[in-house]
Simulated scan of single mutants.
Amino acid sequence: MKHSAKHISEYVLLVLAGGLVRILPLRVALALGWLVAAGMHYIGGFRKEEAHRRLKSVYGDRFLEQEIKRIAWLSWRNLCFNAVEGIRFSKMTIEDVKKQPLADVIPALLQALENEEQGYIFATVHMGNWEMAGVSADLAGIPIFSIARRQKNPLTDAYLNRARNAFDMEMISNDSKVLKGIIRRIRAGKVLAILPDVRNSTEALKINFLNSEANLGAGTALFARQCNCPIYPAVVRRVGWTKHDAVIFDPIRPDASLDKTDDWQRMMQQMMDIFTEEIGKTPEQYFWYNKRWVLQPLKKRK
């Protein structure tokens, strides 16, 4: 299979940057990430104005202009820090996890696995280093799995999959068989890690999120009802440069007495209400730059 020059150049750049980031001390690697973030944000202006617009749309006049700019910068810097840490995930050990504040939630996740007759769903949003929670849970012995979206560049997609395979955490492809695969794994006692704050491209559930209406897929709630398992909402926050904390909330359980669509709506709304409140406490921790913006309305069909 032949690859385009663009795909090859992206792959080579990723491999070179990845090699450098892995051999540098963590703080030095993050400092490099900070420089890249600052260049793209302050010089390149990458999606900066759009992030400002989104923040103002969600929070109105709650924040002054300077506060909006600070929140947007920290959000972008956090993403670049996440990328640095993601490249270095293969270096992480359970001892590293124990040094993190988020280690405090691991016993609760393990206990939940013992309490349930099968697995459950661990739902979080694009906040802090959201992948850190999954990697930490995996290293702590929780049989966790997630859904991987294929990258447009097959070379970088393969590179990222190799990095993910450094752990026992299973990544399943988002294809036509994904539903059956998810249900089978949960019923076998595994934990699905999922990010529900993603806009659906077709008509779906209308959910109040971030003080507006979002078109969200019912996937998280559908899996919970299909498997009769709970959803454990959680948020992850970065603390300084190198630390990460997490909060896990009471489980949201399906209600068999309700119509399935009503139950999906109830569970999704209850979950997103929690996330809206938590994002509002530290908006700089949320990712405001997603190209597929969660609150973007669907285009009306002609």
Rank of each mutant, 00 (worst) to 15 (best):
I121N: 02
K48W: 07
V12Q: 10
F122H: 01
V28N: 04
Q226S: 13
T202G: 10
I207G: 07
P107R: 04
D168Y: 03
L110S: 14
D104A: 13
A158Y: 07
E116K: 15
R88A: 14
E67A: 04
E131V: 06
E213I: 14
A72C: 13
L110T: 14
A221Y: 04
K69P: 11
K98D: 02
F209R: 09
I194P: 09
A234E: 02
L13H: 00
M169Y: 03
L79E: 00
K190Q: 13
L55H: 08
L222E: 03
R22F: 00
T124K: 12
E277F: 09
P107T: 07
E114C: 07
R88E: 11
G119F: 09
N161V: 15
N211T: 00
K243C: 12
M40Q: 11
K69L: 08
K6S: 14
W130I: 04
P101S: 10
G19W: 07
L109N: 03
G18Y: 00
Q100Y: 04
L179I: 12
N215M: 15
L102K: 02
L32W: 13
G189Q: 13
I231Q: 04
A29W: 08
Y286Q: 01
K300W: 00
D61C: 04
Q269S: 11
R54G: 08
S173A: 12
N129D: 07
R22D: 04
A17E: 04
R77Y: 07
A83W: 04
L210P: 11
A188I: 10
V15S: 00
L24Q: 01
I142H: 02
E116M: 05
A224H: 00
A163M: 14
K91C: 02
G240M: 03
W288D: 12
H244N: 15
E95L: 12
I68W: 11
R164W: 08
L55G: 01
P154V: 06
E213G: 05
L16Q: 05
I94W: 14
R238I: 14
I186M: 03
G141D: 05
M40P: 03
K291S: 09
L298D: 10
A193W: 01
K69C: 12
G240N: 08
T93S: 15
R185K: 12
H3V: 13
V247H: 13
M127C: 11
K48G: 08
A214K: 01
E95T: 15
N129H: 06
Y120S: 03
L24I: 02
R27K: 08
H7D: 10
A224K: 01
Y159V: 12
F223G: 09
H126C: 09
E49Q: 10
F145P: 05
L16R: 04
Y59S: 05
P196M: 08
R77M: 10
L113F: 03
A51K: 11
E116C: 02
